[in-house]
């Protein structure tokens, strides 16, 4: 379980996340939503161990993550940044292998079990067909799957994603969210992701955290959080909330009228 207690963090001494407390239970699928600049990514980075808080603590199973050894944290929690630089044309299977880094010995050479693990993950993420290609030659959707595969290679119980489907088409988006759902339900991973698409958030997440101005505006199940009043207040735009006829999950439709 992750416990966030009175967390404040930010950049250059300016708090972007302001005194947040919340609990994230095991095996949940958390979506962090909110406007641009609400502090979603900052919160995610801080709870991934990448941004030391100004005050407050983050505990994983009772241990403060900022008092943990980095290499130990890397075996409990993995993180996929949004704009990860890929400057060299690595071969896809080598690239996925980098995710095994925290599990490797001092010389950081891959062993048989690492190769086996990578095979499994490539099957699971459907990345095997381009295993031998350069990562720079892949399409956006394919590349994102490879990045997820690399993150999975880290074999952690908690996985944090920063906008894993931004600028992907709806087909690639659903296939990635389906992967995350299987990870969550069948492999019992705790998944925490920031997400802009409210409908995908409603469809796939078990709980949502709606952030506004560095604080938690509301959290709960998608049906509780995605109501037109709260969404209109936070996003400052008019919306209609309907129910998806297939999944019975809430669907948010922005209304563009000239009356306002």
């Amino acid at each position: 379980m992750i416990k966030i207690k009175n967390l404040s963090c930010g950049y250059n001494k300016i708090a972007v996340v302001d005194n947040i407390s919340t609990d994230i239970s095991e095996c949940s699928f958390i979506g962090i939503i909110g406007k641009n600049g609400a502090g979603k990514t900052t919160l995610l980075k801080s709870l991934s161990g990448l941004l030391k808080p100004y005050s407050g603590n983050i505990f994983i199973n009772g241990t403060d993550i900022y008092k943990m050894k980095r290499n130990l944290l890397a075996k409990k929690l993995s993180f996929l940044p949004q704009n990860m630089p890929i400057d060299f044309p690595f071969i896809v299977k080598d690239f996925i292998m980098f995710g095994r880094f925290p599990h490797m010995n001092f010389f950081k050479y891959a062993l048989k079990e690492d190769y086996k693990k990578i095979e499994e993950i490539m099957d699971f993420t459907e990345t095997k067909e381009f295993a031998e290609r350069s990562i720079l030659e892949l399409s956006g959707g394919e590349r994102q799957k490879v990045l997820i595969a690399q993150t999975l290679a880290q074999e952690t119980d908690i996985i944090a994603f920063d906008e894993p489907t931004s600028h992907l088409d709806i087909g690639s988006q659903s296939s990635i969210f389906r992967l995350l759902r299987i990870l969550n339900i069948e492999h019992k991973k705790t998944i925490i992701t920031t997400i802009h698409d409210l409908n995908a958030a409603g469809e796939f997440c078990s709980n949502l955290i709606l952030m506004d101005k560095g604080t938690i505006f509301k959290s709960g199940t998608p049906t509780e959080v995605l109501n037109y009043k709260d969404i209109e207040t936070v996003y400052n735009t008019t919306v209609v909330v309907k129910t998806n006829p297939v999944s019975n999950k809430p669907v948010v439709i922005p209304v563009f009228s000239d009356n306002k």
């Binding site: 990448l50 980095r70 130990l72 990860m84």
Partner: peptide, 11 residues
């Protein structure tokens, strides 16, 4: 080469 964030989260 994967950048500061990824490298740090790999320990």
């Amino acid at each position: 080469t994967l950048g500061e964030q990824k490298a740090s989260s790999l320990g």
